[in-house]
Nucleic acid binder design. Structure first.
Lengths: 347, 347
DNA sequence: TCATCTCTTGCACACGTGTGCGTATCCATT
DNA sequence: AATGGATACGCACACGTGTGCAAGAGATGA
């Protein structure tokens, strides 16, 4: 049978409030009985009931983390950062895979609400207006990762990478290597991160005096198969590019695999840049040039922000604002200088 | 303010037990009031308090999942399987990274005990006797993944891949390709999975009439850097092997990267087999031949087993036993037939 | 008409913990 | 010796929910 503070109270010949106070190290209890009760609790194998405690204190010390799928290594690294920070502050993580199905997302949110989590971190790729409304109903602060939300509510904030700057870095790197015709392979449709990376790409081109060519924007989907298809489209172009910037590393990997099958050498015939710097980026052949997102760091930041929001509800809130972190260009071997090939300038 | 069943009771002009029964669809309540109360609950935005419910029913519908690190894509895929199955049965997953630090593991277990989880799944690489004892103290059933535990307790069982058979498959494949000198690069020290894979390796060699050579067993650590170092050792051998079976894919990747730097061609000069079939195995160059573990499936199985154990506590338990699943050899391009090279037979 | 039975609802308690407030004890001060 | 204050502890209630049991209201049969 499970031992409660009442059992300890009976064993020690005191009342249960005394035990409660002794275990929480209250100054109201004499040092002698405090020590006696603590030893007793230890001996009897007492474990405080977090449910009962949460019921009365209205604090559960647990946070919900909603992801599309934890099997995505990019997501997993973020969650790693979240969990570690949460643990260090005595918080517990409840994991929810939404699988990008709205119905499942709703169910997850309802569950978190029911469990009375102290806060929520969401790293689904897109967050519809309807979903955000549900999120607000939890009645707990919410932090979004890589989800730009225009009107951050009273208690919802976000941590995100500077996608535009990242796109600018990647494209600028290719330009500096001498490339003029540079493709962009898009990510999932309508994602704000895709649009921002693309904006950075355009910005870098214009800055260098290169006219952006709509034909060089090739649709992808953020997954390897999207990259594979993109390469085929790219090759069918009348005037194919000498370099390509991909929405993310997964896309780049697919594209490179397809290129290898077609006998196209990377980076000799085509330079490729990715985005994210997933775990294996340096182990691919060729090692992938990419824009690194500080994934674990972003998880840490999000959790810290959430902790601030949680405690800010009691204290009058210190000012918290959305946080934007910078990606970092990591040059490996999938890009190289454009040289000694006849450069075909259109128009 | 949060709405409780008492608030609904007041609004409906009934007592709170009536509301409780109406919402749980009890046959004791008339259809009319049941409908009225359910509609009222909907309107008032009622969300049941899982804490209070768990306190009285002694069921929390949440399970703890302890992993070394969720950032390991292999682990993440297992957790994906666990979470999906848990969700489908109305259960919630509490995630704990142990980071392989014993102190952290203990803390995690204590936290899970405090939260009164209904069960626990552990997929840390090694589980010491002391740790298992702590685990038992949770007072909830435990399922271990890829952790062979000799004496499974009253409520602890396991799901694991057949490591010995997997090692036999990998080595057999190399033998069939004509290789005679085959190395094995070990995993983390003293892990039972490593010993079992090595046993399968020896078994396949002996079966084929090849004398196992202790010099060909090279220490690794389960990570890429271990594989890189292994390659150097391997090259320094007087009579180097023509093929190598690595403890896992991470090791193989490191080994292949090191080989590339040394100008050694895979699979022309050296055939390489991995283990696990991590997500990117097919995207590496060359695509990796490996023994696939059904990761998501193992997660599913473990969760199903846990559900059985949980419900079996009330019903008299149906018989549950440890489960062993078979890996599958996946032949890609990192291995190939040994041919037309002078074969050096020792002794 | 009265007893019995079914249907519906309320009362009271329990789960385990935290906390405001009252009170008993003891020591020091006047 | 009486008063004051500090110290240490118990009483009672609250958090939100589930459930055994009693009780009231009708309906039905004798």
């Amino acid at each position: 049978m499970r031992v409660s503070i009442k059992d300890i109270a009976k064993a020690a010949g005191v009342s249960h409030p005394t035990v409660s106070r002794a275990l929480s190290d209250s100054p109201l209890i004499s040092a002698a009985t405090k020590a006696r009760i603590q030893r007793l609790a230890q001996e009897m194998g007492y474990s405080p009931n977090a449910l009962a405690r949460g019921l009365v204190t209205r604090q559960t010390y647990s946070v919900g983390v909603v992801v599309t799928t934890i099997a995505d290594p990019f997501v997993a690294e973020i969650v790693q950062g979240i969990e570690t920070t949460a643990h260090d502050h005595g918080y517990t993580v409840i994991l929810c895979n939404s699988g990008a199905e709205p119905q499942r997302e709703i169910a997850a949110v309802e569950m978190l609400r029911s469990k009375r989590v102290d806060g929520v971190i969401v790293t689904s790729s897109r967050v519809g207006a309807l979903y955000l409304e549900h999120l607000e109903r939890i009645g707990a602060p919410v932090v979004l990762i890589n989800n730009h939300n225009e009107q951050s509510g009273r208690y919802t904030f976000s941590v995100e990478v500077d996608n535009q700057h990242g796109g600018w870095l990647a494209t600028g790197h290719l330009i500096q290597l001498g490339h003029q015709r540079i493709s962009y392979v898009t990510g999932p449709a309508n994602s704000s991160s895709d649009l921002d990376r693309q904006a950075g790409y355009r910005h870098a081109l214009i800055e260098a005096g290169i006219e952006p060519d709509a034909a060089l924007i090739i649709p992808g989907n953020g997954r390897p198969d999207g990259g594979e298809r993109a390469l085929e489209i790219l090759l069918s172009l009348a005037n194919p590019p000498t370099a390509v910037f991909c929405y993310n590393d997964m896309t780049a990997i697919g594209l490179i695999a397809a290129a290898r099958r077609r006998g196209i050498s990377i980076p000799k015939d085509l330079s490729v840049v990715g985005f994210d710097d997933i775990v294996f980026a340096s182990y691919f052949e060729p090692p992938l040039t990419t824009v690194a997102q500080p994934k674990a760091e972003m998880g840490r930041l999000a959790m810290h922000m959430l902790l601030s929001l949680i405690t800010a509800r009691e204290d009058n809130g210190e000012e918290i604002s959305n946080r934007v972190v910078q990606g970092e260009l990591i040059v490996r071997a999938s890009t190289r200088k454009l040289c000694k090939r006849v450069e075909r300038r259109d128009k």
